[in-house]
Design a protein around this nucleic acid. Structure first.
Lengths: 206, 206
DNA sequence: GTCTATAATTAGATAGAC
DNA sequence: GTCTATCTAATTATAGAC
């Protein structure tokens, strides 16, 4: 998960462990939900023990918050970078590029969608904070400079477009083993990722 | 959930309790996942106690299987009924009607999608059985007489279409509280359900 | 069929050795 | 910082009263 840093210096040992624990927690929460994932299992995935998990994160709640910040923060950073690197002038061509990059990102991070669905049904303080901090800017971007404006979708339809796009782009990767058995297609293959990106892009921006 | 039966006679007491427990388990599994949902919580939702849950379902595994059969079986029955009642001659018009009925169904059963995402990442014997028994007929229907054939989608794209349609139709209802805060739109309102059905139908079958 | 009591296991959190 | 030991509470499953 964190093999490289942007700066050349490696992380101090403690902080590197902390990062490993967050990554392990993210996978476990996405797979089994908040209640179903045990701190012992998270520790084992991170290659350490339960005591050290509670040392770095005094409560399971705080560990959840760190995992949520990691996954939504990473998505934001990745999209901002890729959007900035796209050099299309035509808004529609540009929106197509953004959409395809989005599909590629969710394909490599299926835990993002599983996490969203598992936690999206709650409306506690932590979830509200995630929405306001990380999701609102994405929603606004889509309305003003993304698929909604480029596809000529009425702004009052933006909520439907947002969830339709997110669901259409992500589901196949979040249930990859099921898809493989049902359809014969393996969503983990690069070829499948590109084909799905094609399909979603043609659907939204024909 | 089960206020009426097709036959006039009411269920025997024990069987009625059993049905209530299945409904409660379904909600709990969808909300917290298999490991996160406790049999005590399920019993409480069903208005009884933990001992009676293990009387009707000797293990949590068997309860899971009953819940999965219930939700996928109900979807199949509901869709078959509604498809049969549609009277459009034009295949495209007919596919539009099926798609809109599908959106209405998932809107009223958001636990279906949560269950799919929570469990779709596993490939144990039970999940394989669910796929072969309940999902394969749906997938085949969509290819031969549903959206794929009506929208002129190449059959090799059927896997992408299946997961894109499912995700696009369902996500907004599965994360309703989040959607409400993010967009101001409440997916539980009838008006929202129809608007989303419109949007998805226009997207797939313009 | 229904419920109470309880056994065996596992959970999150704490304390302390190193 | 890291890990082991332990406390308290909650978990599934079982046994038995009614």
């Amino acid at each position: 998960m964190t093999k490289k840093r942007t700066s050349g210096t490696p992380l101090p040992r403690g902080q590197a462990t902390r990062e490993r624990i967050i990554g392990a927690a993210l996978e476990a929460f996405a797979e089994k939900g908040f209640e179903g994932a045990s701190t012992r299992e998270i520790a084992e995935r991170a290659g350490t023990d339960q005591g050290l998990v509670t040392y770095h994160f005094p409560s399971k709640d705080e560990l959840w918050r760190a995992a949520a910040e990691r996954i939504f923060g990473d998505l934001g950073k990745a999209l901002d970078e890729r959007v900035a690197s796209l050099e299309f002038d035509d808004p529609k061509e540009r929106a197509r590029g953004v959409l395809r990059e989005y599909v590629r990102y969710v394909a490599r991070h299926p835990e993002l969608f599983r996490f969203m669905v598992a936690e999206g049904n709650r409306s506690n303080a932590r979830m509200r904070w995630i929405i306001d901090t990380y999701m609102k800017p994405r929603f606004e971007f889509m309305k003003e400079r993304g698929v909604v404006s480029a596809a000529g979708i009425d702004e009052s339809d933006a909520p439907y477009a947002f969830y339709a796009v997110t669901g259409a782009a992500s589901l196949i990767f979040a249930v990859a083993p099921t898809c493989r058995r049902l359809t014969g297609v393996d969503p983990r293959k690069q070829q499948t990722i590109e084909a799905h990106a094609d399909f979603v892009a043609r659907l939204l921006l024909p």
